[in-house]
Amino acid sequence: MEVRTRKVGVATVIDLKGQIDLSSSSKMRTAVLEAIKAKDASRVAVNLTEVSYIDSSGIATLVEGLQLARSKNCHFVIFGLQQAPREVLELARLDKVFEIRLDETAALAS
């Protein structure tokens, strides 16, 4: 899996690419938590457009990110979900817990 972090205005966007499973979720976790812990973090958006698979370890990382962001008054949003990752969120009944946006424009505007 590939992870890239970039700044877009005041927001931090984390681009993930590939499949998120037990072998790769720690890399994702590091990027997500670092972005939220950054001194100036006010909005963190996780880009899942190119993620074709996510397992419970990836979902756990998103939940951890959401909780940390809430504790730091940081806006946490995910966007670009493909069908399979969306179904996993639904199975975990977390699809209503996260702020999910269609694309980056919507994620940074909300």
């Binding site: 419970s56 979902i59 939940v63 959401l66 909780q67 996993v88 199975l91 977390l94 817990v97």
Partner: peptide
């Protein structure tokens, strides 16, 4: 239980649900 939103422990839920 899925009532509590917290990381971890979802794998067995997925297996049993699917």
């Amino acid at each position: 239980s899925l009532e509590e939103v917290r990381p971890g422990g979802l794998g067995t839920h997925f297996i049993r649900t699917i």
